Simulated scan of single mutants.
Amino acid sequence: MGHPPAGGFPHDALLYDSTDQLVATAAPFLRAGLDAGEAAVVAASPEGATALREALDGDPRLLVLDRGEAYQQRTPAAITAFRRLAQQQTAGGAPRVRVVGELDYGRTEREWLEWERYESVINEALRGWDMWGVCAFDTRHSPEPVLASAIRTHPHVVTPAGRTPNRGYTDPAEYLRALPVPAEPLERTPPRFAAADVADFIGLRHAVAAELAAVPASADVVEDFLLAVDEMTSNAVRHGRPPVSLRLWTAPDRMVCTISDGGPGWDDPFAGYGPAHGEDLSHGGMGLWLARQLCDHVDIAGGEHHPGDGGVSVRLTTVLR
């Protein structure tokens, strides 16, 4: 693991069952990077970060980040944070950034799924960003679906014995298209508000805002959700086929809105994990990207890869914490 592979975004899985095993694999990886003049970053559990810092004898060049700061709350923000990290470190003269990261996958299967998506998406989203990522998974505490996903989403596996190709790795586009769209029980109940054929954007926004005014959440959370609804409704009208419909549900623990149209759907499984036109935001293409940052979950159903009863639906969910 001493010399970084050329091209692409090296993205390795490190499965460990003790802190000693984590250190035995990750510390030489970080040390080799520092010896080569590369940046070395750790964004792991507090226990793992402390052990790795000690293994490198407190080397001041090692950058230890709080993993909540590194990964952010939502997956597109995590991608942006790591791109920014690469820009900062390479601008300072480092030829590449080595990162040992360890996600907190959350407590529910719904939360796990978002980060399982992320682990596959970053194979493309961080390609060419002068980074080499090693993702650590504690097999003692990680849920079984998370460990299974780790094998599907990392091209290589690393151990104290070295780095080997991962036969279980699945092409990201194939993997993402095969992921399930989780069921939402609220969708089987009468909506709090519904519009069958959207035509009046201003009136619709006022109507949705009036319904959300009674939700026990901060004004910022409600406004973010309302903006995501606006963006997805606008997308459906501009890029889909009529009729465009909207259904809204609220519960004590979440807000849910589904926007549907008669269009063929998205064929891009990476849609919404970055601006559609890269860094040039003047070209637009920001709707789904913004929605993924503004909501906890964005699920797309219908279209070629998620066939249903015709058309495509985007479901937005924000958890009320």
Rank of each mutant, 00 (worst) to 15 (best):
T50D: 14
V134Q: 03
T80M: 00
V222L: 15
L126M: 08
R163D: 11
D267K: 13
E174G: 09
P185Q: 10
A228R: 07
G8F: 00
A217V: 14
D35E: 15
L248F: 06
G310D: 14
P252C: 06
G308I: 09
L179G: 12
V97C: 09
R254K: 14
D299Y: 13
S234V: 10
S245G: 11
T139M: 04
E47T: 13
I79E: 00
Y71F: 14
A183M: 12
P10W: 00
D261C: 08
R321C: 08
H156A: 09
V256G: 03
A6H: 02
V244R: 02
G93E: 08
F29L: 09
S245M: 10
G48E: 02
P143Y: 03
P145S: 09
A207E: 15
D171R: 14
T159L: 06
L30Y: 06
L30N: 04
W112Y: 15
T170L: 15
A194W: 13
I259N: 01
A276I: 01
A214V: 11
P95Q: 08
D253V: 07
E184C: 12
V256S: 02
A13W: 01
D261L: 12
G92C: 05
E231G: 05
E184T: 11
Q293P: 00
R254M: 04
C257V: 05
R31F: 03
T250D: 04
A36T: 05
C295S: 08
R321T: 15
E223L: 15
L176S: 06
V181R: 14
D261F: 07
V244I: 13
P182K: 15
E119W: 07
M286C: 03
L288Q: 00
V64I: 12
D20K: 01
E144F: 02
A55F: 06
G285Y: 04
V237T: 09
W115G: 04
L294W: 03
V100L: 09
G262L: 12
G263S: 08
R188F: 12
G262I: 11
V146M: 05
D220G: 12
L62K: 01
V222C: 10
R98V: 02
D104V: 09
P243E: 08
E279P: 02
R163Q: 12
R98I: 10
Y169A: 14
S313M: 11
A228F: 12
S45D: 11
V256T: 09
E102N: 09
T317A: 10
W115N: 05
R74S: 02
A43C: 07
F9S: 01
L147D: 05
S234H: 07
P269N: 11
A251V: 06
A40M: 07
L22T: 05
A173L: 13
R192V: 14
G133I: 08
D17V: 00
P252E: 11
Q21L: 10
D268N: 14
G101N: 08
R177S: 14
L30M: 09
D130L: 07
E116N: 10
L204D: 06
R254Q: 14
L186N: 10
H3P: 01
R140V: 06
E109P: 07
M286I: 06
